[in-house]
Every structure is written in structure tokens, then in C-alpha cells.
Amino acid sequence: MVDLENLRTIAKETISREDVKYFIGWREGTYGFSVSPHFVREPAEADKLIFSPLCSNNLATYLTLAEKLPVPRGQEPDTRKVALMVKGCDSRAVVQLLVERGIEREQVVVIGCPCQGVIDTKKVEQLLGQPENVVRARWEKGKIICQLPDGEKEFIKEEVLAQKCLKCRYPNPVIYDILFGEKVEPWCQEEDFQEVKEIEGLTLQERWDYWQEKFSSCIRCYSCRNVCPLCYCEDCILDRLNPTWINRSVNISENTAFQLSRAFHLAGRCIECGECERVCPVNIPLMKLNKKLSKAVKEMFDFEPGLDPEAKPLQASYRPDDKEDFIL
């Protein structure tokens, strides 16, 4: 059971600290399935905080998204800490941000939230056979209870969990200052990259056709990039005109190059929170791209990002004996 009273107490105490600027958590949205990020600046606002199977959003993205407005002359910038609620996967984004100095450790108060998996709303809709307005949801012993307009409905966890959660090995935060709730037993020991292997098993032409079909639907809304906690360059090279890496036009060539570039820039950095795929309005299976690189990184370099804040970034390091059987 999620002890919301406890959560709100933690939040109130945290936001009352002099060195904390604001507290980022989740609150109920205004429409079914939609949970909103909640920025708590006053203790009273803490009462809206929730933690439920609907809390998909990786809030770590707000650490780097925060706009740094020009500081008026004679004033000092607000350098107080940001408090942040993180699930296991989200916490790995925090670690990766520390590795690449996107944030500094003393800038954040990490509220670690052991997580039993979040809902993939598309799966629920499929099971119900129609769009539904899930107002609330909660975990209960291997089940997820959803509150629908006409009463509660029970689902078996595995049926409705997001794909990333089924294979989650880090349900507990890997870094935190305050732990909210009790740690959970991981239900998956090893990532088998099944969905990647399925694609790898196809012929070249089948793979090309598969991805071309997916990429052809891309509308280049850049949601995948914008939601990603690790895509935080001030000036993304994919937006630049000088030089132009990717043309503005939306066509299969540019879409393909865009998606390849985005995925490649996350190689050895993606912590598999699945936010890009969740927010994609045209349902491109982006995690199948990201996971391919995770698999390659694991197999070739025995590396997993977002676990050790002291680790060297994968692409800014090498080993003399790195695999090279492909070299002529």
C-alpha cells in the first residue's frame, strides 16, 4: 500500500527546508490516464501528491529542462536544491546525469520511490475494448486495481504493465536521499532483449521494411527528444542549420536519419525509462531501437549506464581490447 500521508509529510518537510527550491512529484491529471507533474513550492501544495501505477512520467527530465532565465543585474541566481521523486528507472537517469555533469549531486534531493511497475494505458484500453477513463489506480499483491467511472476493475499485473516494467531489474531507486515506501523484490533477474532478438532474426530486407514503415509515420514532433531526461543540449545538433545534419522536411530519409541520430546519441546513455516511446503520438517502437544499442553496449562492452555515478561515459572511454572482429 502506498502511504500517501507519509509522502505528503516528506514533501512538506522537504519543501520547508531553506535550501530547497521546489519539490517535483506527480498529481492526478484532469483527464483519465493523465497524471501530471506537480511542482510543489508551498507545503499546502503537497497534499495533491500521489504515487500510483499511473505515474509513468520520468520527472528527472525537469532537472535539465528548467529554463535558466537571465538573472537581473544585482541579483543572485537561485541555486537552491530541487527535490525530485524518482522510480527505479528514473533514478538511473539521475545517475547518468551525474556522470555527464548535467546536474551536480548537491543540487538535488532525491526522493526514491520503490516501484511495482506502471501501467501501459494502451494495454488497458485494449483489454477493455474501448477508451476508458481510469481515474486512479493502485497496486495490490500482483494485481493492479483501476478505478473506472463505473467502479473498480482488477487486472493481473503482467497484463497491463508497461513493456519496460516487465523486464525491469531496477524497481528500487539506485540513488536516493530519502526513501519513500519499502523496497520491493525485483521480479526480473536478467534482461533477455527478446523484442530486439525478434527483429535481429528478420532478414535485412524485412528489417528495413519494418523500420521504414515505422519511420515513415514519424511526424518529427520531437516529443521523443524533448521528454528524454538525457536529451538536454542547449542547442540540439538536429535543430541546427549550420551545419545542417538533418533537413527540416518530413520525409522518410530525414526521418530515418533523425531517428538514427537520436538513438545513437543515447548509445551507452539510455537508461530505458521508455518515455520516448510512451509519448510518441504515432506509436513508433522507439525502445526497440534504444534497446538494440543497450544490448550491443552490454554485449560488446559489458556496460550498463545509470548505475554508477563514478563510471566513465561509454563513448568517452575505450578499452584497448575492445571487440574488433569487424575490422578489415
Partner: peptide
Amino acid sequence: TCRGCGYCVE
């Protein structure tokens, strides 16, 4: 535009 990640330093 530098984000100070330090990859280049490494």
C-alpha cells in the same frame, strides 16, 4: 552551447 558534460575532457 557547450553543456559542460566533460566528454571531451575525458
